[in-house]
Computed example of a mutant assay.
Amino acid sequence: MQFIATFSLMQFLDTVISLGAAFILGTLIGAERQYRQRTAGLRTNVLVAVGSAAFADLATRIGFPSDAMRVVANIITGVGFLGAGVIMKEGLNVRGLNTAATLWCSAAVGSCTGTDMIAEALLLTFIIIAGNTLLRPLAAAIDRIPLNERYSEVSYELRLTCDGRLVEQTRNALIEALEAADYPVSDVTEDRSYSEEGCALVARLVSTSVDPDELDEVVNKLKRQPGVTYVTWESSTQD
């Protein structure tokens, strides 16, 4: 019986403490995520923390310190793929980055407990929860500050609708007007489902530093183009 020959009560108790600590700390982190109805909630954070702790504990028991470091490095990579699963892109906006980062931190907590660094895991758990709760009012306050389009790192789109028979003419006028204002165009997409006789054009700008007044001038210029019925521009923050 290989199990009896290799079993050590002290090592077993050490594993129980490591995995138990990972379970408790993962629960604390996950409870906050679950309360806010995030994609990765209580169970996911617990499993990530306990799984990371189990792998780190296994490497510590049967290998050398260098083996434990290699296992932790692979945990980081593996959880990175897991975090990618909770990131969702909606148009120009990205959701789930904070949840993915929290999963990554849960793996760090588990790795600490698995290598018997429980005090460090406690400190890290406190910092994670504080970052997700105490910093929320500050983030909300910053979000309420009016956006300065000229200096903020944002994406810009100029949208117009025109007569479907004048699409090529309008597209050329759109690109020329933007380049004349020193705003090179990344690409122009066309949507003919807008109406039976009309067409929508969307131009995405390369520049991240934009003067709103200059874009307004471009809009006013395009409004005077034959066949153009509507022109506007909008910005969205990059994640």
Results as ranks from 00 to 15, higher is better:
residue 111 S to L: 05
residue 66 S to C: 00
residue 189 T to M: 09
residue 109 V to A: 04
residue 90 E to G: 05
residue 131 G to T: 09
residue 78 G to K: 06
residue 187 D to N: 15
residue 47 L to M: 14
residue 39 T to E: 11
residue 180 A to N: 13
residue 183 Y to C: 09
residue 98 N to G: 07
residue 17 I to M: 07
residue 60 T to W: 13
residue 93 N to A: 11
residue 110 G to T: 03
residue 159 R to T: 11
residue 34 Q to F: 06
residue 210 V to H: 09
residue 219 V to Y: 05
residue 92 L to F: 07
residue 106 S to G: 04
residue 10 M to F: 14
residue 27 T to C: 10
residue 236 S to Q: 10
residue 182 D to L: 12
residue 68 A to V: 13
residue 147 L to P: 02
residue 179 E to L: 12
residue 228 V to H: 03
residue 36 R to D: 01
residue 177 A to Q: 13
residue 129 I to K: 04
residue 92 L to Q: 08
residue 195 S to R: 15
residue 21 A to L: 03
residue 6 T to C: 03
residue 71 V to W: 10
residue 8 S to K: 05
residue 160 L to C: 05
residue 230 Y to A: 12
residue 20 G to F: 03
residue 62 I to A: 12
residue 195 S to P: 07
residue 171 R to N: 10
residue 54 A to T: 15
residue 144 R to Q: 06
residue 90 E to H: 13
residue 140 A to V: 12
residue 134 L to S: 02
residue 28 L to H: 08
residue 49 A to P: 08
residue 77 T to C: 06
residue 170 T to N: 08
residue 5 A to I: 01
residue 19 L to K: 09
residue 126 F to A: 12
residue 96 G to A: 11
residue 193 S to M: 14
residue 183 Y to P: 07
residue 13 L to H: 05
residue 96 G to V: 07
residue 66 S to M: 09
residue 229 T to G: 13
residue 5 A to R: 06
residue 46 V to Q: 08
residue 21 A to K: 04
residue 128 I to V: 05
residue 79 V to I: 15
residue 160 L to N: 05
residue 83 G to I: 00
residue 124 L to P: 00
residue 7 F to Q: 01
residue 221 K to P: 00
residue 234 E to P: 00
residue 135 L to W: 05
residue 1 M to L: 10
residue 99 T to M: 07
residue 146 P to S: 04
residue 157 E to T: 14
residue 158 L to Q: 07
residue 38 R to W: 06
residue 44 T to N: 06
residue 22 A to F: 09
residue 108 A to M: 01
residue 115 T to K: 02
residue 140 A to E: 12
residue 65 P to F: 08
residue 55 F to A: 07
residue 134 L to Q: 02
residue 192 R to C: 04
residue 238 Q to A: 08
residue 3 F to Y: 08
residue 23 F to V: 06
residue 227 G to P: 03
residue 151 Y to I: 14
residue 191 D to N: 14
residue 210 V to P: 04
residue 116 D to Q: 14
residue 12 F to N: 03
residue 229 T to A: 11
residue 113 T to C: 12
residue 88 M to R: 12
residue 50 V to G: 01
residue 157 E to S: 15
residue 122 L to R: 02
residue 92 L to N: 09
residue 124 L to E: 01
residue 85 G to N: 05
